[in-house]
């Protein structure tokens, strides 16, 4: 049985950009290697200007590496056929404003060679997936930021790619829109689609990704399974519900008797502001007017 090639294989990628005024070229990506296996959700995190987008563009053949190689499912990124298996959502995408959501998906579908009823069915399916069926005949020019991101995600998925590359998929989107995009990423993961996303919103990356790479000033500084990277090995967390103060006191006494264990913190866990926002807006939405 043949072993399937990695969805993404970036080997020792270096990318220099010529600058007009300085003799020294600007090194945007410095010896970065990434390997993403099929079905993984990989998050590349780093501050602005750290080389995340350049890495993605090199993987898509939009920029040529100064040295190193990029491949998608074993196919060289500089070759057009590598793009059959990949869908891309760029950062802050603007689609053709004169087209409606439906026409946009049809255009991208036709570019991928899909025609007729196959295209029609796929467009309907994707509009439902990204919850834009009602807005499908509206011009893109009138779409909100969240809707643009969702139609962008739909166009990325039009030819059923096995790999989806998302550059800052939730940048500038409100918490509800952001949650919807995250839910879509979860759906992709369930369908076995490999996702390569980059973001500087760390909480989101933590929520959806199983593998993470941290890039800083063009260099990969840390990479691995998210669980392994963030686990604090010498600590244990217990979260209790409806525990009376007596039980808490007993547990604390037990810990105090142990020579090695130490209680670091106890108290009520706090919800995140985001969860609070989502809960309250949902409550308002469901309340009768």
């Amino acid at each position: 049985m043949s072993v399937s090639p990695p969805a993404v294989e970036i080997r020792h990628l270096v990318k220099d950009f010529k600058t007009s005024f300085r003799r020294q070229p600007l090194r945007a990506v410095d010896d970065v290697s990434i390997r993403i296996m099929p079905g993984e959700v990989y998050g590349l995190i780093g501050p602005n200007g750290s080389g995340k987008s350049t890495t993605m563009k090199a993987l898509l053949g939009l920029v040529a590496p100064t040295s190193g190689q990029c491949a998608i499912f074993g196919k060289d990124s500089l070759k057009v056929d590598s793009r059959n298996e990949v869908g891309f959502l760029p950062e802050n995408p603007y689609f053709y404003k004169h087209l409606s959501g439906k026409e946009t998906l049809e255009f991208y579908g036709k570019l991928c060679g899909i025609r007729g009823s196959t295209l029609k069915d796929r467009v309907t399916e994707l509009l439902e997936l990204v919850d834009l069926t009602d807005a499908s005949h509206r011009r893109i020019g009138g779409y909100s930021k969240g809707m643009l991101q969702r139609i962008g995600l739909a166009q990325a998925l039009i030819q059923r790619p096995r790999l989806v590359i998302l550059d800052e998929p939730t940048a500038g989107v409100d918490p509800i829109g952001s949650r919807e995009i995250r839910d879509l990423i979860f759906k992709l993961r369930e369908q076995g689609i490999t996702v390569f996303l980059c973001s500087h919103l760390l909480e989101q990356v933590q929520e959806v990704c199983d593998h993470v790479g941290i890039i800083f000033r063009g260099k990969m500084v840390k990479e691995g399974r998210l669980e392994d990277l963030i686990a604090i090995e010498d600590q244990t967390e217990l979260i209790l519900k409806d525990a009376d103060p007596g039980l808490i006191a007993e547990i604390e006494a037990l810990i105090a008797r142990d020579a090695k264990a130490e209680l670091i913190r106890s108290g009520k866990p706090r919800t995140t502001l985001e969860r609070l926002f989502l809960r309250e807006t949902k409550r308002q939405e469901t309340q009768p007017k």
């Binding site: 057009v80 891309f88 995408p93």
Partner: peptide, 14 residues
């Protein structure tokens, strides 16, 4: 400018 070119060239379009 609108980055629509990225999405087009990211498809199998020579």
């Amino acid at each position: 400018e609108d980055r629509t070119l990225y999405t087009i060239l990211a498809k199998p379009v020579p």
